[in-house]
Simulated scan of single mutants.
Amino acid sequence: MAAPDGSQDSQEASYLLLPNPEDWEEQGIPDFVYGQKDLVGKGIQWPGNAGLTLDSLPRSRFDSALCSAWRQRVELGLFRYRLEDLQTQILPGSVGFVAQLNVERGVQRRPPQNIQSVRQEFDPEQFNFNKIRPGEVLFRLRQREPEGPKQEDILVLINVSPLEWGHVLLVPEPALGLPQRLLPGTLRAGLEAVLLSLHPGFRVGFNSLGGLASVNHLHLHGYYLAHPLPVEGAPSTPLDPKGYIHLLQALPAPGFLFYTSGPGPDMEGLIRRVCRATDYLSNHEIAHNLFVTRGAPPGPASSSAGLTGLRVILWARKSSFGIKESGAFNVALCELAGHLPVKTSQDFGSLTEAAAVALIQDCLLPQARVEEVQAALVALMAQEEL
């Protein structure tokens, strides 16, 4: 995939680039400061040749800053492997899976930590984001004069084993040692990161412990993918009278859909409701994955061109701990959304839609358990008016 920010680095983003390696610690972490006017809720669409090239798309300050700093870290050799253009195919069938061959990630990524519980406490002796090299930090996200609740600072780090171009981690206040459990301020930062990008394929997600999070230190993933995904416009039905929570029934996996048209009170309500839902799942030892993408409002199936707001999809799933080597891919946030990073050339060449669906659905909760979770989440949404 071509770099989403085009071939030229933005001069505006040059202050975020590293000086000589020996000066990294002395220079400190640069700030990327943004305001409400930088958050774009509407008017983002896929070009007519979506998936072929995105170099012609407009770029925001955020896109230029992230991509130019990320490219510099590539040239400095800070990643575990050099990410070249990934072989990509849209699997034949009705779902529209985007499969990519990423052998190096399957081989070179850091082994997951020893996790036994969705609610496991942070362990400073294990690997965490206070132990990374200074050059892995791109910048600090800092909101200028927030209109809503004060947003804690978020560090934007490279993922040294990237899924795709621009794969970063959003980490709130690493020194606090927060475990991998979603918090409102962290989710708000993820939503705002998507709104800061003019790229329709910049997505953000969260894996819980037991949901294939490999590090028990609070973080979100963000990355660019030059293709629409099934969840952007998949049909849904409301589960409560207020329309706070919807059931996304389409393949590859049924999930709970939350939607906001953009910044403001509506988004704050969504953050509150989503975190109530993830708190319930964590408290009941139910692993989960979450995906944030620009998309269509809830309702009937919609063209992916209708990216009128933000879709937040939450999946409850079976817990999975330890290293998972079987199968063409592991099932976490991007796979549930329809993006399949495949580990071997053999699997990439033979993978079918039916096989992908079967692998994903094998990781989901039994239907009876799903119905229990659904009833509990709907009850939680009813408390919004209390």
Rank of each mutant, 00 (worst) to 15 (best):
V378E: 03
Y280C: 00
A226E: 13
T278V: 11
L225F: 13
R105P: 13
L314S: 04
R203G: 09
K242H: 07
V274T: 02
G306C: 10
K150S: 11
F32C: 06
Y244N: 02
E192H: 08
F329S: 02
H219W: 08
L212F: 15
K242E: 10
H219R: 09
E136Q: 15
V342P: 05
R140G: 03
P230S: 13
P366N: 09
A301W: 04
F97I: 07
L157E: 07
S302V: 02
G299Y: 08
V98K: 11
G190T: 04
P124N: 09
G41I: 04
K131C: 09
A368W: 03
L336W: 00
R73S: 12
L380V: 06
P300W: 06
M267G: 01
A65H: 03
E232S: 01
N283V: 03
L187Q: 11
I154H: 04
L163T: 10
L66M: 15
L380I: 01
E75N: 15
Y34G: 00
A253V: 07
A213I: 11
E335F: 01
R144H: 13
Q72N: 11
L380H: 05
A50E: 07
G177F: 01
A69R: 08
E147V: 14
G306D: 08
A368V: 06
N130H: 05
E335H: 00
E371T: 06
G299C: 09
E268Y: 09
A316E: 02
D85W: 08
E145K: 06
N159K: 13
P254M: 09
E26A: 14
L247I: 10
L198E: 03
A337F: 13
Q100D: 02
H288L: 02
R80M: 15
G222W: 02
A375S: 10
L169G: 05
Q116A: 09
S56F: 04
Y81H: 13
W315T: 01
H221R: 08
G243W: 10
F79T: 08
H199P: 13
L54R: 07
V342K: 05
Q100H: 01
Q72I: 13
A3P: 05
P162S: 13
L247R: 03
D279Q: 14
K37I: 07
S320M: 14
N128V: 06
L86T: 10
I44D: 08
P30T: 12
W165L: 14
P184H: 02
H288E: 05
H217C: 12
A50C: 07
P124I: 08
R276Q: 11
I90Q: 11
N128G: 09
Q87Y: 03
L86Y: 05
W315L: 04
Q100M: 08
E12G: 12
V204Q: 08
S345E: 15
F79R: 04
T293I: 10
